[in-house]
């Protein structure tokens, strides 16, 4: 089944439209080419190397808690 994990943006390189995000405690590089108006600290849904859309912090934390409860993430 395909899942998109919420991830918090920790760094942005505007020149390359790439961001570093934290997914389940692991830092990964994702493309920001598909989303507008994001900044460090925002949560985005990440799938196959792309941030798909911005989501609000409450929804992101709730979703991460559900993933953790289901044993799909470590924390």
């Amino acid at each position: 089944m395909c899942l998109a994990l919420p991830a918090q943006i920790t760094d942005i390189d505007f020149a390359t439209q790439m961001a570093t995000v934290s997914v389940d405690g692991v830092k990964v590089e994702v493309s920001l080419a598909l989303v507008d108006d994001v900044k460090v600290g925002d949560y985005v849904l990440v799938h196959v190397g792309y941030a798909l859309n911005k989501i609000d912090e409450d929804e992101a934390l709730k979703t991460l808690a559900l993933f953790a409860e289901a044993g799909l993430t470590a924390s």
Binding site: C2, L3, A4, H47, K62, T63, L66, E69
Partner: peptide, 22 residues
């Protein structure tokens, strides 16, 4: 993770978990 929930709770949780084919 859906066990023990009411159907209303299920319907609020499912779109959060499965956002791709939401």
């Amino acid at each position: 993770m859906l066990i023990g929930n009411t159907p209303e709770q299920v319907l609020s949780v499912v779109p959060l978990l499965f956002s791709l084919c939401g």
